[in-house]
């Protein structure tokens, strides 16, 4: 089974933390990354949402996260 990761497929891309330091920083700080999501949708054969829809869903989901004391 071959599964697609955020920045491409397989071990190499995951080891790089996406497709570069920008993606890595975005992920580390929990920022939205629409380009990586488009890449994911393309590889998975999904119809991607618009950037506005993606951002709205992303921020809404971030608001449910827990920050520790």
């Amino acid at each position: 089974m071959r599964l697609v990761t955020d920045g491409g497929s397989g071990r190499q891309k995951t080891a790089q933390g996406g497709t570069g330091w920008r993606h890595a920083l975005r992920r580390m700080f929990g920022m939205p990354d629409y380009d990586a999501y488009l890449e994911h949708c393309r590889a998975a054969g999904h119809e991607p949402p618009s950037k506005g829809e993606y951002l709205a869903q992303f921020f809404e989901s971030k608001g449910k996260g827990v920050r520790c004391c």
Partner: peptide, 16 residues
């Protein structure tokens, strides 16, 4: 993997 919540992430990035 859905590209949003479930995303395989480099361990150093995820550590941060």
């Amino acid at each position: 993997n859905n590209g949003r919540d479930y995303v395989p992430t480099n361990k150093w990035v995820l550590y941060g």
